[in-house]
Design a binder for these strands. Structure first.
Lengths: 105, 105
DNA sequence: TTTATCAGGTTTGTATCACAAACTCATGTG
DNA sequence: CACATGAGTTTGTGATACAAACCTGATAAA
């Protein structure tokens, strides 16, 4: 851990990928549900299609979610699942943030 | 609370002004310390001068902190204090976020 | 069959914002 | 004086959140 003139930085760093409210919502839902489609997530998070799409791409790039594109009755259906990496990232983030917030008590 | 086709948004909204990690650190320190100068905050948060300065301005604009410029032995000294509004904002943010994070348990 | 419509996404454009480099301005110091 | 140093502020830039416009394939209507 870096030190600056004897002052420490606040322990753990915040994972910005999880921290962003839009993505945090997505992750929260996926964490409990295990698998959800695009439209469901859109309603649950109240994000626009475009916005949701780009956040999902970012999460996928980071390996936090897996995206599987199926066809159900010839209608495309995109299913999102939180990967193990994503789960761990969220759990760590949760720890970090709660600790940080509780540190004032 | 807004509803979209029967789906609810996640209760409380996240205060982005507090949410930003750099500002969250600042607020956390001010919350416990009640009053701190610029240089102290710089070291504690490990932010650059420029960065710290602009975050402080934003917090001041929002009325979350009070900035008082004094001279101590002819050296300028800027003291920051968390206002009541800022305290409440933080407390609400803390509640909101912990609730949100705990909601998966 | 051609045209329109719609569902399910993706790509593009833009406004905002975090951050650091460069600047300001006053005060020591040789 | 010239130069450095401390304490911030302003400016410039790259990243990013968001929505508007676009795309692509399936069904509906003419």
């Amino acid at each position: 851990m870096t030190k600056i003139r004897g002052y420490e930085l606040t322990g753990e760093e915040i994972d910005k990928l999880v921290h962003e409210p839009a993505r945090l919502k997505i992750i929260l839902y996926l964490y409990t549900v295990e698998s959800a489609d695009f439209v469901y997530l859109m309603h649950k998070t109240s994000l626009s299609k475009g916005n949701l799409s780009s956040h999902l791409s970012k999460l996928e790039e980071a390996g936090y979610i897996d995206i599987e594109k199926k066809f159900v009755d010839k209608i495309p259906r995109t299913m999102m699942t939180l990967s193990d990496k994503g789960k761990h990232a969220f759990e760590k983030y949760k720890e970090t943030l709660i600790t940080l917030l509780r540190s004032v008590d």
